[in-house]
Write a protein that binds this DNA or RNA. Structure first.
Lengths: 227, 227
DNA sequence: CAAATCTATATTGCATAGAAGATGAGATTA
DNA sequence: TAATCTCATCTTCTATGCAATATAGATTTG
């Protein structure tokens, strides 16, 4: 607990509440805490060597983000999404990310496209080496860099939250090699359209890319539920 | 849908945290707590006759909703939005509400349209009688009923949150009689398109309706800042 | 007189503890 | 046997208190 002790020169002071929120969020996103799991406050508190108060505050924040659900006097559990809700979140993504992408493409600088290219290269090597956790990170990083030039912080925050609510399901689906390869091809295609400034083609591809991801995921979940 | 009529003493049907969150949210939405206002925990706690713990948890939730901002060791203040952020939120509304509306119109039942009509009638009388607070409520109720048939809870929740972030600015603008009358005409037009099942015209009108609201608001804010 | 430093006070952040509500196993009854 | 009740136990929920931090005014210093 001595790592928080930045008395001099500490620009960013983090309270315990925020640190716990971040840690728990990461655990949920990574699937370490699975959907429906009970989040017992004193267990979490003793795991982080803090009291239950900052744990509770962190859980309230995650509740507002949609990642956990509170039941009065029964505690918090990791939220779960129905098929319909998953589809709905993907539909919202198509709308918002399409808008972001269309706004971003005309404003992209060369170096930004270069950065995106670097990410895709690393993505490809991660794919070959089967580094699953890296794959997810780079995928998120790539999509993020595509939208950053749009300069739309509020939209980006919503999109980020949508990803936070979906990612733990997507992570399950990473086992589908076919989906990964399709995603890779799509990504290079998206980048090509960016370079050429072809907004219409780019958006169309993004739309089908997200839709395909959704369909793959649902199919995977159904298959998993059926076995 | 928040009828909270127990002002003195104990909150009963919820946890105190949730009750405080609801009450504070309402105060911010209504403009009773203005943007930039310091939300001192002790003052709020003693005002509701509770301790600071549920107050802090409520504030964390409102933070995640975007209504307040925490500064470590300095406390929470009511969030404020720049012109650009306001515009952005309205743009997101156009996207999401357009989608909701398009999905809802084909599924609307007669009685639902009747309910919407009733709301508009009450809206008109409220307009004539100058009942400002009622106006805002009915406006929200009308828009909500237009989207409910879409059966898209996640989208609706996001839209609801967008409204929560915008409404206190809109409420300032209610003084513009012209805007109110334009809104009324738009609303009747929207309902007419619903009855006729004319999705395309309905969406187009909704889009310009929201856009006009945004333009009016920005203009109003600029004029107010300039005086 | 201005700038820096110190001190007092107010406010937040967190821990501890006890009250309130939920859960489940064993006892009791029909 | 089956259903219901009771009680012990666990967990959450909230209050209280203390420590850490920020802020403003007073004091000192150059």
């Amino acid at each position: 607990m001595a790592e928080n002790n930045n008395k001099t020169g500490g620009f960013k002071r983090q309270t315990i509440t925020e640190a716990v929120a971040e840690a728990l969020r990461e655990e949920i996103l990574s699937g370490q805490q699975k959907e429906g799991a009970q989040l017992r406050q004193d267990a979490i508190a003793s795991r982080f060597n803090v009291s239950r108060i900052p744990v509770r505050e962190a859980l309230r924040q995650l509740e507002a983000e949609g990642l956990v659900t509170f039941y009065a006097h029964k505690g918090a559990v990791v939220s779960s999404l129905s098929r319909e809700e998953i589809r709905e979140l993907f539909d919202i993504r198509r709308l918002l990310e399409g808008d972001l992408f269309a706004r971003a493409i005309p404003k992209m600088q060369k170096e930004l496209i270069q950065d995106a290219e670097d990410i895709l290269d690393r993505y490809d090597t991660a794919l070959e080496n089967g580094e699953v956790s890296l794959w997810g990170e780079l995928n998120a990083e790539f999509h993020h860099i595509l939208y950053i030039a749009a300069d739309r912080p509020k939209t980006l925050a919503i999109v980020q939250n949508l990803h936070n609510n979906i990612d733990r399901y997507l992570r399950i689906q990473l086992h589908s090699a076919g989906a990964r390869k399709n995603a890779r091809d799509d990504h290079w295609g998206l980048l090509k359209h960016c370079k050429e400034g072809n907004v219409e083609a780019a958006i169309k591809l993004l739309d089908s890319h997200i839709q395909a991801g959704c369909d793959d995921l649902i199919e995977f979940l159904d298959a998993q539920a059926g076995n």
